[in-house]
Write a protein that binds this DNA or RNA. Sequence first.
DNA 1: CTTTACAAACCAACTAGTCGGTTTTATAAA
DNA 2: TTTATAAAACCGACTAGTTGGTTTGTAAAG
Lengths: 209, 209
Amino acid sequence: MDNATRSERSRNAALEAAIVIIARDGPGRLTLDAIARESGLSKGGVMHQFRTKEAVLKALLDRQMAHFEEFSNQYHAKAGAISANPELATQLATVREAASAPNSAALALVAAMVENPQLMSLPREREMKRVAAIKAEAADPDLALLRWAAARGLLLSGLFGMSPLSKAEHDRLFARLLDDKQWTALEQPAAPRSAKSGTPKAATPRKRA
Amino acid sequence: MDNATRSERSRNAALEAAIVIIARDGPGRLTLDAIARESGLSKGGVMHQFRTKEAVLKALLDRQMAHFEEFSNQYHAKAGAISANPELATQLATVREAASAPNSAALALVAAMVENPQLMSLPREREMKRVAAIKAEAADPDLALLRWAAARGLLLSGLFGMSPLSKAEHDRLFARLLDDKQWTALEQPAAPRSAKSGTPKAATPRKRA
DNA sequence: CTTTACAAACCAACTAGTCGGTTTTATAAA
DNA sequence: TTTATAAAACCGACTAGTTGGTTTGTAAAG
């Protein structure tokens, strides 16, 4: 077998094993020996592909981020046509995707945080750009942020095994989050530039007493 | 010093040390030796108060849950007067409280999940009851769930060091979540009993084209 | 022959938990 | 109050096993 593909295969085997371990035994049980056992490789083999454990976690993160980055890009390409807030729509859809994949990126995130919290800085920076984009395009930025936050809440709750929602509810809620028409009713003007931006007490109730 | 209070002091010292360690070094660095070092107690002293490491985590969880339980109860007692959805209002306020405390319950949760995922079953069950209560009282249950999910999203994002929001934004978003008046505009009838409850494609757009 | 990919034995540091012993507090008889 | 005894809190060295990482060996690819 070609050397390059042999390496590739081993790397993949190791990373998939890592995800299996995290999902099955929890992030605290992710060790190099466990990866070697689970993947069938020897420890030396694993160490040849990843010089340190941190390298494994970084690879896991990179891989998952790349996967959702691609999903995100593909969705974004089409989102412009179907939504007035393509950035938000894209992020909502991507989060929904992440929430539906059981062996998800987020598991890698948790594992990374457990071992080395500062590994999170990279994903955080991307997230900040996305949030900025969402705010920039929105007629009511805070409302957009709340929709974004709700999606993340659903994702993270599910990830922690703390979601009390059925799959049907879960799907229904995401569908509603994504449906722009359901939210325009309470959009508020972007930011009354004249007023101070402190906590608005009860900014202009609009319809329905 | 009294025996009971001596024990109490040691237990407290150990648990506070645990939280410090998790917050500073990450949940993966929480070891019994680290707790002993950080708290000033000896290893034996820690082990006398907590027979196993799991006992430490359980105590951490119990303590934090009790704290927020109390906050929740106090808020709930007053919430009936100020909100049409007292259960939701209470949970939103409690989550806001948890999000504002840096050494929060959620850190304990993460630590517990890392070491022993099944420890989460207790908090999960409580959460399920709360969600049920929120749905029961709501005119538009799904909307209430989304407000709840948004709060959790803000909390968990912040907890993971992934919140791209400033404190001002954070506060503003929570204020808006809590303000019932801002949400009644898009409430939808509880559940059209006549229709099948599959994923509604675009349930009756109501106002504003 | 050189480099790459992997295997297996190995190591020092660290882990949760144990154990014998010391100090502090509690009880209560003298 | 003093003294005797027990019980609880606490200490720190120790064990058996695990950790991430290294070293040495081997076989295949180039």
